[in-house]
Design a protein around this nucleic acid. Sequence first.
DNA 1: GGAATATAATTCGTACACGATATAATCGCA
DNA 2: TGCGATTATATCGTGTACGAATTATATTCC
Lengths: 169, 169
Amino acid sequence: MPHDTAKPTAAPTENPLPTDVPAPALMPVDDLLCFSFYAASHAFTRVYKPLLDAIGLTYPQYLVMVALWEKDDQTVGGIGDKLGLESSTLTPLLKRLEALGLLSRSRDPADERVVRVRLSDQGEALRAQARKIPECILKATGLDLADAVRLQKEVSALRDALEKAAGKS
Amino acid sequence: MPHDTAKPTAAPTENPLPTDVPAPALMPVDDLLCFSFYAASHAFTRVYKPLLDAIGLTYPQYLVMVALWEKDDQTVGGIGDKLGLESSTLTPLLKRLEALGLLSRSRDPADERVVRVRLSDQGEALRAQARKIPECILKATGLDLADAVRLQKEVSALRDALEKAAGKS
DNA sequence: GGAATATAATTCGTACACGATATAATCGCA
DNA sequence: TGCGATTATATCGTGTACGAATTATATTCC
């Protein structure tokens, strides 16, 4: 293995960290709030895996399908707003779902910039196959419905706070 | 600015507590517990972005560094267990951190199968630069420390439940 | 002591995920 | 009315993330 001397060190951009705050003790990874979300999110994906394999979808693809089952005929940007994804993520993902025959993508005649995404009959039909998934997931969490709803609200509120903080920094 | 033109949803069902519904089969995306985690996790990444750009790390790279700051001289598998990542994810990531001069990777003479990962002086030094990050994140969450700890514990417990469910399927 | 097995890391192929850039279509306003 | 700014999507490059197959080493058990 050749010894790399490139060493692209930290960019000399302005440091957004406060410089005079006394630092707290270093937290173990497991105690970081962000890490618990990171790990829990991966754990969700792993629980979904066998259920989604059965209907031939990945987890992000499933989220797009749920969004379309909820409301058909959405734009790429609309789906992106809902799921928090960029068009650079969605375009290839939607092309794969189109290749699977689950939806169609076509430019809106009224505004050629916009691509409208519509479920195919097959995409509609898949909904029935996916119907039992949410309760399987709920069971895997070990939570009752009330706790799950409470936690979902708390996490969504946290997301809002984080996005507000990220938006204006 | 949302791109919706069609059908203002007349349904006043903003509250996702439909306990009369037999199964959470047709839940909107936003109400899925898994989605709230998925979205919150992305939101955390976005909040971290400017802070980590300043020290030249990505978010998963930062987690690896935190794990090493907590305990130096770990194996690839050990880090993977802690972070819940496969070696196929870690190997290239660790090679990038090595290329940055933050750590070294070398086979253990006592067992040539394992690779020991050790911080370099530069990697140790970076710790000081990163000390103030956790409190910046806490501030962005809008939570006080007690709430953050409580939520972290709840989410970690959920992760454990999910992993147990995924493990024996 | 050596074959069968198990383990640790790497490689490979596929699929997100994002920022920067490109391209095309529409809008805004002088 | 025209043309610069804005908007919607697509493309490109980099970096996760995982499962399957591979390689090399260590352990088991006969």
